[in-house]
Design a protein around this nucleic acid. Structure first.
Length: 358
DNA sequence: CGAGTTTGACCCGCGC
DNA sequence: GCGCGGGTCAAACTCG
């Protein structure tokens, strides 16, 4: 098995381009992470990590992972750890109806994030139930087609199946693919697949441009749960694993950790439709023994900032994300260009802007 | 034998 | 329109 992986890695077509090392200096996050003592583990089971994805914030994260260095103001992490966790509440709005130019203009003008202007459409479109229903309808279409093809021979069946596929594809064409809200975070880990308590099935792996490390695609194995996650290593620091979750779990976590971190978004950007706190597993418990995640949580989100939680109804020791500071698009773009996953999270024009200003 | 992984092929969106 | 890269599919394969 191990040998196989090595073989695969050897077969990956690496880009000729030398991955440029982004500058990770400048710790910009005004955040503090609360200690994540393990407690209230059942919260994880009942709420689930991906419940946090219910927090839709349709803004452009100007600086995704603007720094790997914890700001000096951070409260000292209780357990000694050589690792870091960078948390990002993502919002892709490339599929949103908001005009991206307008968005950029707003950003340049220093206007507040568009979260408050577009979340509803985003939520609806990104609602797992919506995607589920669409998949159901697809299935029913296939079933209907199967009914029709029963009378025909194999050739006709194949044709019908092709038709069905084409129909589905055309549907997809007409209907711009909607993506679930995403949430990305970085961990310093030797293993790629962080054990977050859910069961994942790998469905793909791709070589990432400008990175020697492949990106793996996982889907939640629970029936009807369309949550996906992508895992890739930072090309700049191979010890850093970037994990991006997409979607919301429709089921409780199969594994109930003892502790969790709750991230409560700022009320101004908190999705009213999903008034659940952002919970994700306590790293020390959930992660593989090789993994180490510092209980610091970084967010580059312009509307998120982590402060020690003093008002959480769940656990006072949980860090709370709060809005506080908007980050420079330039600094983020410089960093993001070299992160395939991260690039995906940040709108193109923002990245381009950073390039132009080089 | 079922569940999960691997991996080549394919599709789609985007930039040029 | 074309090429590139990301994302997904699905058959073959592996593992427990």
């Amino acid at each position: 098995m191990e040998k196989k992986k090595e073989n695969y890695m050897a077969n990956i077509k690496f880009s000729d381009e030398n991955p440029s090392a982004p500058e990770f200096g400048g710790s910009i996050f005004d955040m503090a992470a609360g200690a994540c003592e393990g407690s209230g583990g059942d919260k994880w089971g009942s709420l689930g990590f991906m419940d946090l994805l219910g927090v839709h914030q349709d803004f452009v994260a100007p600086s995704l992972f603007d720094s790997f260095q914890p700001p000096p103001i951070l409260s000292p992490p209780p357990p000694p750890s050589s690792s870091e966790l960078v948390l990002h509440q993502d919002i892709l709005h490339e599929q949103l109806q908001l005009d991206t130019k307008q968005l950029q203009q707003q950003r340049l003008q220093g206007l507040p994030s568009p979260a408050s202007t577009i979340p509803e459409s985003s939520e609806i479109l990104n609602n797992p139930a919506t995607s589920n229903s669409s998949s159901v309808s697809s299935s029913s279409n296939e079933a209907a087609n199967d009914e029709q093809t029963k009378a025909g021979d194999d050739e006709e069946q194949d044709q019908d199946q092709d038709k069905t596929k084409k129909q589905l594809k055309s549907k997809k064409k007409n209907q711009k693919r909607q993506r679930e809200p995403r949430f990305a975070f970085m961990t310093k880990s030797q293993v790629d697949n962080l054990d977050d308590g859910y069961r994942w099935r790998k469905y793909g792996q791709k070589a990432v441009k400008n990175s020697p490390y492949p990106r793996s695609y996982y889907r939640c194995t629970s029936a009807g749960c369309g949550v996906k996650k992508r895992v890739e290593r930072s090309s700049n620091d191979p010890t850093i694993v970037v994990t991006t979750y997409e979607g919301q779990h429709t089921h409780p976590c199969p594994i109930t950790p003892r502790g969790s971190i709750v991230i409560v978004p700022d009320s101004s950007s908190f999705c009213a439709a999903s008034a659940q706190p952002f919970v994700f597993p306590q790293p020390q418990y959930l992660l593989h023994h090789q993994q180490q995640v510092q209980p610091h949580i970084y967010t580059s989100s312009p509307s998120l900032n982590i402060t020690p939680n003093t008002s959480s109804s769940l656990n006072s020791s949980f860090p709370v994300i709060r809005q506080e500071k908007r980050l420079s698009p330039n600094s983020s773009a410089a960093l993001l260009r070299d992160h395939g996953l991260l690039q995906d999270i940040v709108p193109t024009q923002m990245r381009n802007k950073g390039k132009e200003e080089e």
